[in-house]
Amino acid sequence: MLRAVLSRDPALWTPLGCDAVGVPEHYGLRLMARLSRPGSVFADTDTGWWWWIVPAGSDRDLRWPEPAHYAPGACIPAGRPRLIHWPDAKVPYTPPIPLYLMICQLAGAVPSWAQLG
């Protein structure tokens, strides 16, 4: 499978590394309307997926529900993603916990926190 890495603008600071969370476009539209501080968001009209930049390791202790796709290193299935939302902050991140909880709600999934220790 071909893969692409979402490019970030060099003007944005990424002190925490970059991963990405993708959802189908119909979820993306609803998430954009609900999130108070979305970071960089990319849309791929070829595949119908929207991708949010989150700090690296945002999958630690979380099980992202289907149909969401977690992409370490912001390495996504190949397509032609384009930036559709520029963040208000100087970092490209969408806060992962609110994003996770909203995706769970849209997917009808109960948030699943991994057991620690």
Rank of each mutant, 00 (worst) to 15 (best):
Y70D: 03
D19A: 14
I76W: 05
V91P: 00
P87T: 08
V23S: 01
L106K: 11
A114L: 14
A4I: 02
C18K: 01
A43S: 13
V23A: 03
D19I: 05
D61L: 14
L6N: 11
D19W: 06
R3I: 11
G48F: 06
P92H: 11
T94R: 00
A20C: 10
S58V: 01
A43W: 10
T14D: 07
W50M: 09
P95F: 03
I97F: 12
L16S: 13
F42C: 04
E66A: 14
P96E: 14
L16R: 09
D9Y: 07
V5P: 01
R3W: 13
A74F: 08
M32I: 10
V41M: 02
D61E: 13
V23P: 05
I53T: 13
H85V: 10
W49L: 07
W113T: 11
P24G: 06
A43E: 12
R37H: 13
I76Y: 04
L106S: 01
P111N: 14
V91R: 05
G17H: 09
P38N: 06
D19C: 08
G28P: 04
C104K: 07
T47K: 10
Y93V: 14
H85T: 08
I97C: 00
Y27R: 00
A11L: 04
H26G: 03
P72C: 09
W86G: 03
R34M: 15
W113M: 13
A33E: 15
I103Y: 05
R63V: 12
L106D: 02
A109W: 06
P81V: 10
W50Q: 05
A109H: 04
P96M: 02
A43L: 13
T47P: 05
A78K: 09
L101S: 08
D61S: 12
S7V: 02
W13Y: 11
L12I: 06
S36E: 14
E66L: 14
L99N: 07
H26N: 09
V5G: 07
V23F: 01
Y100E: 02
W13K: 10
P15A: 03
L2P: 15
P77V: 01
A71E: 04
A74M: 07
W51D: 07
D59A: 13
L29I: 08
C75M: 08
P10K: 05
R34S: 15
P81A: 08
P87W: 06
S40T: 12
Y70Q: 01
W51L: 06
V23M: 03
V41H: 10
C104M: 01
S7Q: 14
S112I: 00
R8C: 02
G28H: 08
L35D: 04
G73W: 11
A114T: 13
D9N: 15
L31N: 05
H85Y: 09
P72V: 06
Y100M: 01
A33Y: 00
A107W: 09
P95Q: 09
Q115E: 15
Y100L: 01
H26I: 05
R63L: 10
P111M: 13
G117V: 09
G17I: 02
S40L: 08
H85N: 10
P81W: 02
D9S: 15
T94Y: 07
P38L: 06
L31S: 02
V5Y: 00
A74C: 08
S58F: 02
G117D: 14
R8Q: 01
A68V: 02
R3T: 15
D59E: 14
